[in-house]
Design a protein around this nucleic acid. Structure first.
Length: 522
RNA sequence: GGCUCGGUAGCUCAGCUGGUUAGAGCGUGGGAUUCAUAACCCCAAGGUCGGGAGUUCAAGUCUCCCCCGAGCCA
């Protein structure tokens, strides 16, 4: 059983923005977690490259649509590389194989009798790539989300008979785990309750799209084509572009992680399309929230856009990942606040976690021959830090399973806090000034080092870089959360208390996390 | 206009089926300490729980009305 997870296929209308990075980072954490647990993971991301909007953007830039898409999708690829995203696929919907998958899928839908011709008349927003239901003003209506003029369309299109799937979709979204977070389910339920209407899946006079076989002059509606990208992406390098072949590589998806704005496409249209083609449905659709910045919507007009590439450059992977995953409940909207960003990074990562490791390691080295001290009592699972570690482990594993990154992050941090507290209680630096306390000190330092090791391992899915630096500092091997093939459950076993070897050499400590000094606004 | 979700310490938020002095983190102030990245640890101040009415022995927690914000659908 493959754990397949997807980000949306990002629309290449513009360069990547922070929202896309946020989704992708979260998926990366999830993918790493599943791999560490021993799952075979297929982590899919990609680019959605068709549609009128792209065509126009390219024209405006004096480029061919293909050249434009090549340029922007390269930026995505580069960004994900620099963020060290562990995606297994980066599908582009202009991939030649995708066209064949779409054709085969369409043939199945058509064979089900779900394709009919119809006349589509109405106001269209090119930015949304959507028809809007009768706007109030008959004259010059504009799109409420994009505040741009709508265009009147009157054309004969192919329609997908969504209305036939009313009951099945109702049943689907009633399933407890399907739409998450649960709070968003209402919205979709409401929409579906009003009655599903057939929707058009083709456009005429739009060259930049995949031609609909057997229907001269029609190209596929960009969403129809884009959603199928999830399936094309399943194909391995040498695979023939065959639908069944693709499906065998890891369908159905375990989860589609998306922004809340495209929930309807994923929770209603997409499942209906799959039902029509006789294919299994994804297990879960998770719609996360949006990011604002210092309380305001990010946008070009406000000039307050945070560029993910620059953010990475100035602050580093650990800092940004930590802030986004640890401070914002995944699912809710969140606000990026620079002060809080640096406060949390410095307090949690540099001070609490980094310093804990640093102080302990230097004591151990000083008094115990540059090695992990011998332990007796500290090995026991009833040691207070062993208990704290077990607790943290439970909460972290549970949180990550549920995509509750925040509670996972907090639980890992909590272990480090407990370790620091313990250290202050025991004050080994005072004990060392007395006679006959060496064994006690050895035990205490062992316990804290062990807590540090487990903290590092628990952080591995969230902050692979920091985790690695911590483990190296402890002289430990580093699990590879980006490797597709992971020895079953190794990581889980390493999380057991007491695995740290007494006598193992400790490298000379140096801070594993630098403080973030942001003198200027980002 | 209909529906949904929010409005709790300066900030971000927890508070399950109503029940002792309303919690956490950050920020702020103070103390302790020196192993450590001016770090860690401890303590404290700070809230008419959006407003009003009601139900109840008892409401942040239930009901109704109003105000504000976000979203979905018209």
């Amino acid at each position: 059983m493959t754990y397949t997870l997807t980000t949306p296929l990002y629309y290449v209308n513009d360069k990547p923005h922070l929202g896309s990075a946020y989704t992708t980072l979260a998926c990366d954490a999830l993918a790493r977690f599943q791999r560490l647990k021993g799952e075979r993971v297929l982590f899919i991301t990609g680019c959605d490259e068709h549609g009128q909007k792209i065509q126009r953007t390219a024209e405006a830039a004096g480029l061919s649509p293909q050249a434009h898409c090549d340029g922007v999708s390269a930026q995505y690829r580069e960004l994900w590389d620099r963020w060290q995203i562990s995606n297994n696929r980066l599908i582009r919907t202009t991939d030649p194989r995708h066209r064949q998958i779409v054709e085969q899928f369409f043939a199945r839908v058509e064979a089900s009798g779900d394709i009919v011709e119809g006349r589509q008349q109405g106001w269209y927003c090119v930015a949304c790539e959507e028809f809007k239901d009768d706007p109030h003003e008959a004259q010059d209506p504009e799109c409420p989300t994009h505040r741009r003029p709508l265009e009147w369309r009157d054309e004969v299109n192919l329609f997908f008979r969504l209305s036939r799937y009313q009951e099945q979709i109702e049943a689907l979204i009633a399933q407890p785990g399907f739409i998450q977070p649960a709070s968003r389910r209402n919205e979709v339920e409401n929409f579906v309750k009003q009655g599903l209407r057939d929707f058009s899946i083709s456009r005429v006079n739009l060259p930049w799209g995949i031609p609909v076989p057997g229907h001269e002059g029609h190209t596929f509606y960009v969403w129809f084509d884009a959603l199928l990208g999830y399936i094309t992406a399943l194909l391995e390098e040498g695979d023939a572009p065959d639908l069944d072949q693709a499906l065998s590589r890891g369908w159905p998806a375990s989860v589609h992680v998306i922004g809340k704005d495209i929930l309807r496409f994923h929770a209603v249209y997409w499942p209906a399309m799959l039902l029509s083609a006789g294919l299994p449905l994804p297990a879960k659709v998770f719609g996360h929230g949006f990011l604002t910045r210092e309380g305001q919507k990010m946008g070009k007009s406000l000039g307050n856009v945070l560029d993910p590439a620059q953010l990475l450059e100035r602050c580093g992977r650990d800092a940004v990942r930590w802030y986004l995953l640890r401070d914002i409940p995944f699912g809710d909207d969140g606000d990026f606040q620079q002060q809080r960003f640096s406060d949390l990074v410095n307090n949690d990562l540099a001070n609490t976690i980094g310093n804990m490791l640093n102080r302990t390691s230097s004591m151990a080295r000083r008094w115990f021959e540059n090695a992990v001290p011998p332990a007796s009592v500290a090995m026991g699972s009833d040691h207070q830090l062993a208990q704290a570690a077990a607790q943290a482990r439970t909460v972290v594993l549970d949180g990550l399973e549920q995509l509750e990154f925040r509670s996972a992050a907090e639980a890992a941090l909590q272990l480090a806090i407990a370790a620091n507290g313990f250290l202050n209680e025991q004050a080994p630096w005072s004990r060392m000034k007395q006679e006959g306390t060496r064994d006690q000190v050895a035990d205490d330092l062992y316990a804290v080092l062990e807590a540090a090791r487990i903290t590092a391992l628990l952080m591995a899915p969230l902050l692979p870089d920091l985790s690695e630096r911590m483990l190296l500092q402890l002289g430990q091997s580093v699990p590879d959360s980006s490797a597709t093939a992971q020895p079953d459950g190794t990581w889980l076993r390493q999380l057991e208390w007491g695995a740290l070897q007494s006598g193992a050499p400790l490298p000379e400590p140096s801070p594993v996390m630098a403080r973030l000094e942001l003198s200027e606004p980002l």
